[in-house]
Design a protein around this nucleic acid. Structure first.
Lengths: 252, 252
DNA sequence: CGTGCGCTTGATAATGGTCAAGACGCGTGG
DNA sequence: CCACGCGTCTTGACCATTATCAAGCGCACG
């Protein structure tokens, strides 16, 4: 899903990160926003200046609500977040899952109002980045402007991958692709990519993938029976990643 | 589909446009890029300076190809364009249709390579906007930077609408939504929104909507029998837009 | 300890896909 | 100018995947 994000992170290993001097960049939750930018020391200071850092949020908390005035984008430091869009007739669509180091909220820029609602799937923390101040700073620091264009473009390509998945792939292929994406994103944070806990419910998964909970549940059972994965409630273990890749038929 | 684009255009009526002094902004194909910006005269000149204006292209021509190095984004002046993404296993997904005044090619920014192929659906013309020069200029003209952030955000919200459509709506609802979107976009250009010629084939439509050509064909016949639309090959007439909106069940 | 929500599993149904055949339209070449 | 041929579109019959409906389990939380 988010292979663009992935690649951008992977090509830039372990440089010292000024946000959290005690940590390597691989650990700093802000790496996707600060890492690719060759900032001068005082520029880093200016960026840190505008960022509301490490605000803790509890499970189920809404960061912003659809139609609410847009003022900031958010970087995930800890935990997992989902964005959902409610249609005119009341149906809901999960439009994305966001893991540490990823940015959400960019949908609100165009209309100065959010077109999604963002919700914490588990207890975590976020950095709030006021967008008007980010824009100002981008006028002075070209690499910051460039990076933000790239971030938004990544969001576009990630969504195009989801469009393709929904449009062209079977239920099983969609599930496999999601698991591979989640696995990759855990790996990027130096966490186990073969064994992890799903932060989202079956309902979130099925909604995101355009399926029903029943179908998701059945496919999990089938994959488990085929010994591709092992599932125990939200705990997932990938037993045969090659076969999972085969099921996905997609370059995640 | 593209309601974000739509609203942005509609709230800014008929100001004089400096690109084509003889025309109102409603006619200037570049309106989505220049219109919302309160530029000084010399700033307009600088923008016009970098834009390769009005390059004609013939039907079937590729503007850029997937994996090709990214260097520019493109504004449609005339005609209609589609973007397609080819997956690892060779399947193709139509990711968007672009009408005059709309911008395509922003997918390439993140990876400095295009993740789509853009193809002209009919003979038309485009403006090429070299991205590095646009970035430079955005550093000097804050309203231009702001506008480009908005453009990209619009692309994100448009894609989220498509995701929702693919995930939650029936074949008939998808078709109705697409027709409403196309109709709206024709209206924005002061062209007939009730009677128009589809620039894309049934295959393009079905691919975009995650359906088969047979299903698209059947639904067109059904809608015609129900006297909601009249179809003659690519010529479409909307007979009952209220009923079409009812079918769409979506805020297009 | 009970209630409820999330998850699983089964039976059945429907939407849309696949396969197949024929019609229509358009461009090309005789 | 007409005829041929191919590609696009339509329509029908049949089939498969996934949704729907229904029931039961188990864990978490009051």
């Amino acid at each position: 899903m988010n292979s663009a994000e992935g690649q951008r992170i992977q090509v830039r290993p372990a440089v010292q990160c000024n946000h959290s001097p005690s940590k390597s960049c691989g650990d700093c939750r802000l790496n996707t926003i600060c890492l690719p930018i060759a900032l001068e020391a005082d520029e880093v200071a200016r960026l840190e200046d505008i960022v509301q850092r490490g605000r803790p949020v509890e499970k189920g908390h809404q960061i912003y609500h659809q139609d609410q005035a847009f003022s900031a984008v958010y970087a995930v430091r800890l935990g997992c977040f989902k964005t959902i869009r409610t249609t005119a007739d009341g149906r809901e669509q999960v439009t994305g899952f966001y893991f540490p180091g990823e940015i959400f909220g960019m949908d609100g820029i165009a209309q100065s109002r959010h077109t999604n609602t963002a919700i914490a799937l588990e207890t975590g923390a976020i950095c709030e980045i006021p967008f008007d101040r980010l824009q100002d700073l981008s006028m002075k620091i070209s690499s910051l402007q460039k990076h933000f264009f790239q971030l938004m473009s990544s969001e576009i390509t990630a969504e195009q991958e989801l469009i393709t998945l929904l449009s062209k792939n079977s239920a099983e292929e969609r599930m496999a692709a999601l698991f591979l994406s989640i696995s990759t994103r855990f790996a990027q944070r130096n966490q186990s990519s073969m064994r992890f806990r799903l932060p989202m419910s079956r309902g979130d998964i099925s909604n995101y993938l355009g399926l029903t909970v029943e179908t998701v549940s059945r496919i999990l059972s089938r994959m488990q029976k085929a010994e591709v994965i092992r599932v125990d409630n939200k705990e997932v273990e990938i037993l045969d990643i090659e076969r999972l890749r085969g099921l996905a038929m997609v370059d995640a």
